[in-house]
Amino acid sequence: MHWTQWLTLGFQIMPLFFLAGGHAAGGSWARARAAGGTPAGWLGRRALRLLLPVAVYSGAVLLAVGVCTAAGVDADTLALVGWAMGMQFWFLPVYLLLSALTPVLYAAHLRWGARVPPVLGAVALVADVLVVAVHPPWVGLLNYVLVWGVAYQLGFCWRDGLLTGRRLVPLAMAAGGVLAFAALVALGPFPVSLIRVTGQSPSNTDPPSAAMLAWLVAQAGVSLLAAAPLRRLLDRERVWRAVRPVGAASMTLYLWHMLPVLVVAAAFYLTGLAPEPALGSAAWWALRVPWLLVLGALLAGVVRALRPLGRGLGVLYERTVPDAGLRGAWPLWAGLALAVTALARFAVRGFAPDGRFPVLPAVGLALGTVLVALARRTAAERLERPEAARAPDRV
């Protein structure tokens, strides 16, 4: 329904993920560098922390795809389910690329400070003009790094206090971003929806558009204004006790949140147990309440059931994590390239493209994860810089 597209202004929170990611990565890289860590060592540790749970999730989905393929499940149904289980993966290759670029981006931040995000944004605008006007192949892919890179770079600025010295700065970001978004939607070719709508062109997310960039700046400004009161709220022990477990389960929620949707849909709709009133009718809206409650309960059960797996992955991470002082080891870079390519493939085509098992992406993700886990410094490097191996790296 067209009017519900306005709700995406509140539901589209990916700018906040990249803003918080930049804030965390800037601090982590600054600490690692001060302790004698290297870019390769730092990146290997961060990449592995993401890739281990992703590999487990992907392995489970791929196993299900293989079983369903052997059982003769309808190819179109399998392709749709495989796409639904992989559509959130677009975030991972973008975030891994920004992580790989963090030492360079942070060096630019230390030299030019708050001037870097506007420059990235200007280049993104040029790329978006080309996408809308000329439709050149592959140019739009740049904006996945440029637009989300603006939020990532703003995270550096936030951490180092460049945006919080005066209240006027976040106010200007919030107001300017909202006004720019309104102008781009009213006068330009961009839709209001901040999620992809079938048949809608151009899209604000695929690739990220100038309108998404404007809303990103607005969200960052609002976040800066809200940060201080929210920190005071989180200082209350009861609130922190409630928030902390959700934060600890964030990766599980991110990876597995579509599973309850598919299970409940299959159990209630494919079997005819649930009524299917007309879309947008009063009965349809009334059914959203039990639908969300059932999904929430099932998701809570999934998260609880996966807790032992999370603890096991934590142990595996500590045993296989690359050394903080790792230098330019080829397994790390080769593994990262394979993993990014495979994750991008899953994000675009799903886990069962055309109803078939995706052999090459599956092998690429598995091999890439193993290579990142195998990255180590040589014995000579350990003897040369033993202090780096002992340096803590808070990821």
Rank of each mutant, 00 (worst) to 15 (best):
G121W: 13
L43Q: 04
A70D: 03
Q153C: 01
G161A: 03
V131S: 03
G149S: 02
L78C: 15
L120G: 01
G140E: 07
A35N: 14
R31A: 15
A124F: 05
G41W: 08
G72D: 07
V119W: 00
L142P: 00
S99P: 07
A70Y: 04
L78V: 08
D76G: 12
L51E: 01
A32C: 12
L50D: 08
R46K: 15
P118Y: 08
W83I: 09
V134C: 03
L51I: 08
V104Y: 09
A55V: 09
G37L: 05
R159K: 08
W158G: 01
A34C: 07
L142Y: 03
V81M: 01
A107L: 05
V132G: 01
H109M: 06
R46P: 00
D76P: 06
V65E: 06
P39S: 05
R33C: 03
V116E: 00
V119I: 04
A40L: 07
L163M: 01
A40I: 08
W158H: 10
A75V: 10
G66Q: 10
L105M: 03
V81T: 05
G82Y: 12
L101S: 00
D74G: 13
A32M: 06
Y95E: 05
C157L: 11
A124R: 05
A64S: 10
V126Q: 11
W138Q: 02
P39G: 05
D76Y: 13
Y144A: 11
D76S: 15
V129N: 04
L80F: 14
L48Y: 12
V126R: 10
V139K: 02
C68A: 14
T164P: 01
G161V: 09
A71Y: 00
L168Q: 13
A127I: 08
P103F: 05
A75N: 14
W42H: 15
G165E: 13
A70W: 02
L120C: 06
A75R: 15
P118E: 10
T102C: 13
A151R: 02
P137A: 07
Q153A: 00
N143Y: 02
H135L: 15
T69H: 09
V147Q: 00
